[in-house]
């Protein structure tokens, strides 16, 4: 089976750029389609989040189909929070059948941080087990050892947290994800190049592609809010201070500047194999970041 265009670029050691879109809460996908249209030709792949922050939304797989329809390259995000192993495998089979092969395997945020706090958290599998499940399915077998009629194929990704305040256990988990078959990693948001450099020194021993996660901050207030409320995010004080220097109403512009500077440095220093830009609701500014980072030409 032909590789996805995203996988081909990873294999060719191109500096890849991915971004993500969050599906709407509701059936009106016009905003999502608009964002996809805006981004599809400017990035190498678009992730579609899976009930991000445990907030119930239109599904990732539905968003990926829209990305395909609009002529883009989707990355399906699959978390273990809401489905047991039967439903996860079914989703993977369906994704393959619709020519969606890039899959980011995640454990998923706790339901406690979302908008359905009374829901049953599933976590029948974790991210490492999900990666292994997908790789097993590629061999034509499901997790109970039954033969599949038609085996799927994937370009599997996972997440890693280079900025974690206690990195050692995270690195063990990273190793396990590599061993389980992750080919690319889209990191949690990194705000400090020193921790990214340290992580890359470690990660370079493995034959995997690392895409540095860049979160675009819209204000100092947003940064502080994320520190307090969003799992796995720590925005360091110097970044918050820089955001705070923005004139009133120009916070996002400052956030774009900071993100573009990060992307540019990462590209110039060949620090990572690519970047994954998370604009959390401000998707329209992603092309601006790429222009400033000289990854696409102005007006492209």
């Amino acid at each position: 089976m032909a590789k996805s265009s995203f996988e081909e670029k990873l294999d060719a050691n191109e500096f890849v750029v991915t971004t993500e879109v969050g599906p709407p809460k509701g059936c009106d996908v016009s905003g999502l389609v608009h964002d996809i249209d805006l981004l599809k030709d400017k990035v190498d792949a678009i992730n579609v989040t899976d009930h991000q922050s445990s907030v119930m939304r239109f599904p990732s797989i539905g968003g990926c189909l829209l990305v395909k329809e609009q002529g883009g390259e989707p990355v399906l995000q699959v978390t273990c929070r809401d489905r047991n192993r039967l439903a996860l495998q079914a989703e993977l089979l369906f994704a393959h059948s619709r020519d969606i092969h890039n899959v980011l395997c995640l454990t998923g945020d706790s339901v406690d941080v979302g908008d359905h706090k009374e829901a049953k958290p599933v976590f029948d599998l974790d991210s490492v087990q999900l990666l292994r499940t997908a790789r097993l399915m590629e061999t034509g077998t499901d997790t109970s050892g039954n033969e599949l009629k038609g085996a799927p194929q994937f370009c599997l990704g996972a997440s890693v947290h280079p900025g974690a305040d206690f990195i050692e256990p995270q690195l063990i988990k990273f190793d396990k994800k590599v061993e389980a078959g992750a080919k690319f990693f889209q990191t949690q948001g990194v705000f400090d190049l020193a921790s990214l450099r340290r992580f890359m020194q470690y990660a370079s021993q493995f034959d995997v592609k690392i895409l540095a996660g860049i979160i675009v901050m819209a204000s100092a207030r947003m940064a502080r809010y994320m520190n307090d409320n969003v799992p796995g995010i720590t925005v360091p004080q110097p970044v918050i201070d820089e955001l705070a220097t923005a004139e009133k109403g120009k916070g996002l512009q400052k956030g774009v500047e900071i993100a573009a500077r990060f992307v540019k440095t990462i590209k110039e220093e060949k620090l990572c194999h690519g970047v994954h830009i998370m604009a959390v609701g401000n998707e329209k500014i992603v092309p601006d970041i790429l222009e400033r980072a000289e990854l696409i030409s102005v007006g492209a």
Binding site: G108, D109, S110, S127, Q170, Q188
Partner: peptide, 20 residues
């Protein structure tokens, strides 16, 4: 909080759990 078996999720901060 997630009962996972292969190591911590990325939500841990200051040694505490993202759920609480």
């Amino acid at each position: 909080a997630k009962g996972i078996l292969n190591g911590p999720c990325a939500g841990t901060k200051n040694g505490k759990c993202e759920a609480n």
